[in-house]
Write a protein that binds this DNA or RNA. Structure first.
Lengths: 125, 125
DNA sequence: TGCAAACATGACGTAAACGTCATGTTCATG
DNA sequence: CATGAACATGACGTTTACGTCATGTTTGCA
């Protein structure tokens, strides 16, 4: 698969693919002598996972620190232990974000209710 | 209150205050002839609310579109109705973010468990 | 009144995440 | 084999959210 198809199927631009490649977010496609890059199917999944993590508010830099966990079969206890540490940290982070989110949601709802009551008041007159 | 105190009490830099003022995120402090700006207490709350919204992933541009809702006593049904519409949209948005967050959390946990089981396996040998 | 600390304003700098040319090569189709 | 579409690479541009300097004015205190 060349860069055009990859980009389209992953819903990003070729520029984005090249950029990610340049910063080591995705493995460089094979250059079979001709100069053109060729990518395996898995790269699509990888690009989509990156998108997902971006939507969670992670920077590309942060993503680079965890993306491997999703695609590498880390062998060796050492590696797995490192992975575990990182995952746990991210879980903690996610939990904090969740709490903030939920607080925001609650605030929003109370604001909405306040307004709705006010509107109802007016109507009754 | 001058800019130094305001910045300190809101835990931002004076630069940030001036920047927000320049893009209309906070009302410009009164310039009583001398050239210096003076801000009311409320501006502190406003800066803190901005921080909160930023932490939820809103851009300053998006924040500008909603910050008034927290501090203006929108009078008139029209205004309140507009406010309501915006608030509801943001609630929907927050809900989506929440779902994505929770999914991410779930994924993380299953990843962690997988690793933990693997580690336990190794130990038993 | 002297003077350091605080303030105002303008300009330039910065990091992230690409977009947008420009130029040259490779692919694939009539 | 001609030629338009796709690709490669490099360089410069862009937006966001400020940081950092430089220069000049104001405050507040000894």
């Amino acid at each position: 698969m060349r860069i055009g198809e990859l980009a389209e199927r992953a819903e990003v631009t070729p520029r984005t693919v090249r950029y990610y490649e340049s910063i080591g977010l995705i493995p460089a496609g094979e250059r079979e002598g001709t100069g053109q890059h060729h990518y395996p199917e898995q790269t699509i999944l990888r690009l989509r996972k990156i998108e997902q993590l971006k939507n969670l508010g992670l920077s590309l830099d942060e993503i680079r620190n965890v993306i491997e966990l999703y695609f590498s079969d880390a062998s060796g206890v050492r590696a797995k232990q490192k992975v575990l540490t990182i995952l746990r940290a991210h879980l903690e982070d996610a939990d904090k974000r969740l709490v903030a989110m939920q607080q925001f949601r609650t605030d929003l709802k109370s604001h909405i209710k306040r307004f709705e009551r006010w509107m109802a008041e007016q109507k009754r007159r």
